[in-house]
Amino acid sequence: MIVAERKPFDEIAAATSGFRKVLVAACGTCVAVCLTGGEKEAGILAAQLDMAATLGDREQVFSVGCVERQCDREFLEELGPQIAEADAVISMACGAGIQFLAEAYPDTPVLSGVNTTFIGVNEDVGVWTERCRSCRDCVLSITGGVCPIALCPKGMLNGPCGGADQGKCETDRERDCAWSVIYRRLENTGRLANLEEVIEARDHRDLLPGRQVHPAYQRRYSAHE
């Protein structure tokens, strides 16, 4: 899932200072799971902003709205009546959701309430760690299900650098060397021969804004076809 962290309060408060009626729009999927931008967190932010406005003698009103996902048009439609009442919207969704919300309601200023951090996993209660950089060229079949691009600070593709020591990374003694983990995983599953495969350097020239169409939706049919 996509993980995000809330922006510093002062930054959000400064961004909203010029607007009288502000809607805090939560997203009920990824950012709700990572306890950053769900309905509850939006309520907390709205309460904080409301109190700060009162303390600062600013006439501002904050309300809360929540949709299941801000990265789907169907769900965004539900926010229409609330956005029509608002002078600005703070979106608590990931960067994708914020942009889609801004696109769906182009006449209303949309502000971001979170910093999107990474694609990760829920490693423990309240702990999320990065696992994927969405590089579009997955090598996980070769590397035993451990991503050297996301987990190695240097993104080494063919074995460890010279800085690994006792299975730990030179950038942080607490961090496992990704390539040590890869070696152990391949050893456990009897696939050490994978290490002989040379992974070529990523060709970054195709890293244009992504677009993907499912094969079953390649052709669009009209109603009378």
Partner: peptide
Amino acid sequence: NPLGRKKPRAAQTNIEEL
């Protein structure tokens, strides 16, 4: 608490719905 001494606000956050 300075918030308790301010005039009541015209509208509140809809936290009751939450």
